[in-house]
Design a protein around this nucleic acid. Sequence first.
DNA 1: TCATTATGTGTAACCGGTACCACATAATAC
DNA 2: GTATTATGTGGTACCGGTTACACATAATGA
Lengths: 326, 326
Amino acid sequence: MATIRDVAQKAGVSAATVSRYLNNKGYISEDAKRVIAAAIEELDYRPSMIARSLNTKQTTFIGLIVPDIVNPFFPELARAIEDVALAYGYTIVLCNSDEKIEKEVHYLTTLQQKYAAGFIVVTSNEEADHYTTLDIPIVAVDRRIHTSIPFVATDNREGARIGVEHLLASGCQNILCMRGPAKVGPANDRFLGFMDAVEGKGIEMHVVECPFQFEASELAARDQLQQHPIDGIFASSDVSAAGAMKAAYSLGIKVPDQLQIVGYDGTMLSSQLTPSLTTVAQDVYKIGTLAARMLIKLIEGQDVTEREIQIPAELIIRETTRSEAQ
Amino acid sequence: MATIRDVAQKAGVSAATVSRYLNNKGYISEDAKRVIAAAIEELDYRPSMIARSLNTKQTTFIGLIVPDIVNPFFPELARAIEDVALAYGYTIVLCNSDEKIEKEVHYLTTLQQKYAAGFIVVTSNEEADHYTTLDIPIVAVDRRIHTSIPFVATDNREGARIGVEHLLASGCQNILCMRGPAKVGPANDRFLGFMDAVEGKGIEMHVVECPFQFEASELAARDQLQQHPIDGIFASSDVSAAGAMKAAYSLGIKVPDQLQIVGYDGTMLSSQLTPSLTTVAQDVYKIGTLAARMLIKLIEGQDVTEREIQIPAELIIRETTRSEAQ
DNA sequence: TCATTATGTGTAACCGGTACCACATAATAC
DNA sequence: GTATTATGTGGTACCGGTTACACATAATGA
């Protein structure tokens, strides 16, 4: 690899001049520009970002910390972030934390001492010290970390409320809420939204807590369906809804005739199921782009006025509900 | 951030000694070790990887170039790679190429001048010059790039053959093959496997090419199901199989009673569908770990004996086939 | 006892850029 | 005609590590 001094020598100028050329700083004659450009071309010279970083102290890596990229919510988020990162000259480093503090801390420290300019983080860990004490910018996505850390997410409470309203409007009288884990912020918000919709309506309701995981959800749903005459399910993730559909199928319960189901997330899965799933869709791509933009602004020292962004969710009515209203 | 000279000063030794301590190189007295460790502790010193990289010329970034992380095959691959990368002290940089040469080249060049130590690449692009001329190691996954580039993938031909044999053994007489795009290597291998199984068996067959995409697959399947008395479908991806299931459902064709379906990939989706999908599962995690190990060996200058690895696929029999044999 | 080797540490150059400063010349101002 | 400013370039220290080399002392061998 050619260095800046190789270029300088070939062009018959000093390294300083080449550096100025590369960064469009200070005065450079047209002659010098021409001869430097030629030398760069000829040597196929590319500046070493690492040498540059050493004294500018600036890098273009963004660490993306997610629980597990295999969970279908995150690839889409990653994709969105990567798209804006690319546009602004950043690249993203993928970190799977499995929700474990040790892994989060590991990535935070190694990447910081390596090269990271900032982080985008999705975590449910209560202890946020290792985030608040960081000296590079962070943006939290999906789950709030600490009031001092900027945050982007769906308006989950309102989203859930809309989904449950739809179930109500479609005639459900006996609703099961398959709520997510209590320690996950958005799961709680969705549960609150469920309560908002259901309260004072005089309908019967059941609540079961289950992880965003297929088998466990199927089991929980089957159990509830056997115990109660349920005619509507609000699942707080599409995966749980898929589990519920499977449970209904194996119990011979017809969807949507005997049982209506609303999922949450709006992942690919929801449209690929048979019958296709009515769901409350999050605009994950938008969340990702907004978070990335915000982080890059922070990195580049620009003003960030809105430090908390809530994106509305959208109800997508498909085949697991009857929407009697229509 | 404290520097090595800060540590040296606090410990009353030279920077060289601290460096030796950090790298376990050369002689260091126990006294020195103690006093340096204390100074590091006190200053919360972390060596700057970027300064280190500048003269060792070694980095610990692995570029992962995939068409689109949103395609469910890739998160699992990424996860596997990331797991071994973590174990060996590497971090992975996520690059979505959308199969576009420009984007691939962009990432290749920027990351190379930035920091990458090697690449793991999934691409179907014919033109491989920008890969073969690279001066850092690469490993190709899923799709072969060039004979000179190490390669890890499922034995797709054999996998497909097994899947189709199962359809045959389950009594299918009129089979539709939903093959993948002609320009994608693995899709061709799977088609060859289909032919291997079907040839000379005297059964009726139909072939339709469709992308690994839900809507298009549903349309193609519906079209074929309306034209021919098909009783078995071999889809070369789970997504296509899901499309076929939807088509069958909307045409009132019962699965598996009237129509049996075998998918390919073994993604989450296959188990979450109702009925759950019989599929030929790839061991994506294994592919990822093997590829990552191989790349790291190449980066670290170790011998790599096997430069082409084929992993067997496994048939997972679920509810979309009847397996009469049993 | 003297030569040789093992042990331990510091000095300084270097990796490949950036940026401050000095300096030279041309253009403009007074 | 001299002072001032704009334009253009080079020298060199520095970012924060690593490492070759020199040097000093202790331990071992003959």
